[in-house]
Simulated assay, not measured.
Amino acid sequence: MPARDLRAPAFDPVLLWLLALPVWVLLYASLVPMADAVFSALPLTRGTRLGEAVWFFLYDTPKVLLLLTGVVFAMGIVRSFFSAERTRAVLAGRREGLGNVLAATLGIVTPFCSCSAVPLFIGFVSAGVPLGVTFSFLISAPMVNEVALGLLLAMFGWKVAALYLVLGLSVAIGAGWVLGRMRLERWVEDWVLAQRAVAAPTGDAPLTWTDRIRLGREAVVEIVAKVWPWIVVGIAVGAGIHGYMPEEFLASFMGRDAWWSVPLAVLLGIPMYSNAAGVIPVVEALLGKGAALGTVLAFMMSVVALSLPEMLILRRVLKPRLIATFVAVVAAGILLVGFVFNLVLRT
């Protein structure tokens, strides 16, 4: 009679990770009360600049890390069904234009700020999705989402909301397509390219779900371990900027009806950090002080799509040349939006 293998796992890995899913969902749904609970133990008050900065950090850090873990784990399982070569064959070349459209459209229904969108960006890149397509999502997700569109509709009417939707999607699709045509994969960090090169194991025996979950877990260990310090630093910088956004200073520049107000607004927006919903009250305040709508919307797009914290996080994934190219291409599209708004809606 064969001896019993006492080293066998006590729990089925598939069952264990299925049980982990509702825990992840519960944690994600509890981010606000958990941040409130930790914040209440501190000698700070919501509504103050320091208080808002600290609360933002307490909320956004676990949110982005949870997103990163969940997305990387899911993409690790997806990659077990499709090798990197097969993924590129499906999405590259003639399909890339359609991929840009689909990725930008997906961004509309994912109401993430720029830092929250980075985990999905990393997952797409490591799974072999073309770089230009991933950039279309990275631009669209924070810049054009239902929260921003709903607030613009309520505050400025359907014409402004529709024009913002069309031009925002145009920037995301166009910039992603241009970046894809430039073939900049050589400026992606080597460890990310190594992830893309890993194909699903082949052989006569099909992979079991235990194998697939193991691959997902290994992807989490490999990627999250490399990226999380950059995420914490990026969000810390963003939280400080979020709490101390100088509205009066911004209005003093954007209230001037001059051609240089749009590029200046874009430059001023890049060091800032907020999500679309968070920056719209600032947009309303700036407009109340006489700033031009196109200039203010260009500032808004710059804040949510080209934030400094986002660039800090992306630095762990992309080389400086690619980050600079990304910023330049997207900034050009945002400038176009600002000028078009000021031209079409000039009163």
Rank of each mutant, 00 (worst) to 15 (best):
F135V: 14
V129T: 05
M143T: 04
V144P: 03
A205K: 13
R94Q: 06
V147D: 12
A219H: 00
S140P: 05
A175S: 13
E185P: 03
V160S: 05
A225E: 07
V129H: 02
I122C: 06
A154N: 05
A205N: 10
T87V: 15
A103E: 05
I108D: 11
P119Q: 00
T210A: 13
A103H: 13
N100V: 09
L102D: 00
S170V: 14
F112M: 04
R186G: 03
V125I: 15
M143Y: 13
G203V: 14
G107P: 03
S126L: 06
I223V: 15
G168E: 06
A148W: 04
R212K: 15
L120M: 15
S83T: 13
L179S: 07
W158I: 12
A104K: 07
G157C: 12
L138V: 11
V188F: 03
L184K: 06
A103Q: 10
L120E: 08
G157E: 00
R95N: 08
L163E: 00
L98K: 12
L167H: 03
E189L: 07
I173S: 02
T208E: 12
F156R: 03
V192L: 11
G176K: 08
S140T: 09
L167I: 12
R88K: 13
D190E: 14
G132K: 13
L169A: 08
I108Y: 01
L106R: 03
V147H: 12
E222W: 10
D211E: 14
L138K: 07
E218A: 08
R186H: 10
V109K: 06
R94T: 06
D211F: 06
A154V: 06
A172N: 04
R214K: 13
S126C: 08
R94D: 07
R217D: 10
M143R: 04
I139F: 07
W191E: 02
D211H: 12
K159I: 08
G128I: 09
A175T: 09
D211G: 07
L184D: 05
P111I: 03
N100W: 04
V118C: 01
V171I: 14
V125W: 08
T134R: 09
M182P: 02
V147T: 05
A225R: 12
A154M: 10
V192E: 00
L215H: 10
R86M: 11
L149N: 03
V221Q: 10
G168W: 15
G168H: 04
V147W: 15
V220M: 02
S83N: 09
S114A: 12
V220F: 00
G157N: 13
T210I: 10
L102C: 05
V160H: 03
V133K: 09
W158F: 10
P201L: 14
L138P: 04
V198F: 08
A84H: 11
W158M: 15
A199E: 07
G216N: 03
G132E: 12
V109H: 01
A161M: 11
L98E: 01
L151H: 02
N145G: 06
M182R: 11
P111C: 04
E222P: 00
I173W: 02
P201F: 15
R183M: 11
A104Y: 07
F112I: 01
E218G: 04
A197V: 07
E146P: 00
I139V: 15
P206C: 02
F121C: 08
A175F: 11
